[in-house]
Design a protein around this nucleic acid. Structure first.
Lengths: 197, 197
DNA sequence: ACACGATGTCCGAGCACTTGACATCCGGAG
DNA sequence: CTCCGGATGTCAAGTGCTCGGACATCGTGT
């Protein structure tokens, strides 16, 4: 089930991602060197290719892992509130605040040599978006029993895309955006709940 | 130098030793099952044999690792004192106290199915003894510059064997034994220092 | 035009772990 | 007493992953 080999495999992947993430945060996507990731982990260059396919695969994997961690935190904020609207606002605010501080996000959007990396959240953003949607949706369906599943999904859908947009193209402070989004979606959720038996 | 493979190898050995030590502390040497160690670590039985040769090899390896840890602590106590005699007494007391609390020692000496394991500290005690001697001697030569190396070695030699004897066959409380031993060896060290230019 | 560094691919060798079978020994049950 | 189950220890073949080196390709700066 969970053999030593399995654990070793996971650890290898994780250490490779650590090295890669560190490199990206330091020098952007262009500053990421496959050979450097291999060297830092104490492994051959070929092994990195075996694990991730190519350089873009490395970036995706780093992004996926960071997204998971990110969502753990956001879902935590969401869970602290009982009312869906409050949860929504809290989650949005937390997400935007975290994103603003996140070194990887900063490197992907700000760094000079990261034109490609920024596509992770824009033109090539399906992966991150789907992952986020998956986690949020599951969490919301579980914590909002009074909201019909389909409507909850719609709500997550809209909010998620707005939040990502604000990450890519920052606007007002997190709290303001969160309040605005909560007010806009509030009627929808209220009606949804009212019609729900 | 420190490749991922190296770290993995060390980790494997360490996890095997964890499993083995746990088994020994629970059921004594007889209760230690090679197949169980393998299963718990998530590895094939053969791998355990590759690593340690045979069951006795496992026991020796467990003992060696525990001895190293043990001596780190004892050497720490020894280093806290500036005067050799004080250091000697502190180290002896610490060693006897630790041994009295140590689950592995208790299992090796007390457990019903551990007649063989007890030999680690008696008839087959060379390994542990040499290891302990090595560590203590190096530490003492470094911290007792005013004592001739040869005399320091003799002192360690005697004290070590007395301590092990007291572990195997407990007598008075640690503090008493420590004081006694310090008093007995004190004149030797004093004279040694006096003759030393 | 050319050298350089980086990505990506291919392949042969090596190494460690796995798997299964086997011999042996011992203690308990029938 | 005999037999069986469980444990240790050994062996050989199979397998997967990594390594190391060679190679083609491409973009950059000299």
């Amino acid at each position: 089930m969970d053999s030593f080999a399995d654990r070793t495999k996971r650890r290898l992947r994780d250490e490779l991602l650590d090295a890669a993430q560190d490199a990206i945060e330091t020098g952007g996507y262009d500053g990421l060197r496959m050979a450097e990731v291999a060297r830092r982990t104490g492994v051959s260059r070929q092994t990195v290719y075996n694990e991730f396919g190519d350089k873009w695969g490395v970036l995706e994997a780093v992004a996926a892992r960071e997204t998971e961690r990110f969502l753990l935190d956001v879902n935590g904020a969401l869970a602290e509130q009982t009312d869906p609207i409050d949860g929504l606002r809290a989650a949005v605010e937390r997400a935007l605040t975290l994103a603003g501080e996140n070194p990887l996000v900063k490197a992907a959007l700000g760094q000079p040599g990261s034109d490609q990396a920024s596509q992770l959240l824009t033109t090539r953003g399906q992966q991150v978006l789907e992952l986020a949607h998956l986690r949020l949706d599951a969490h919301v369906r579980e914590h909002w029993p009074e909201v019909p599943a389909e409507d909850a999904t719609s709500c997550v859908d809209v909010a998620l895309r707005v939040v990502i947009s604000h990450i890519v193209t920052p606007g007002p402070p997190p709290a303001v955006v969160a309040a605005q989004l909560a007010r806009v979606l509030s009627p929808f959720l209220a009606e949804s709940r009212r019609l729900h038996v």
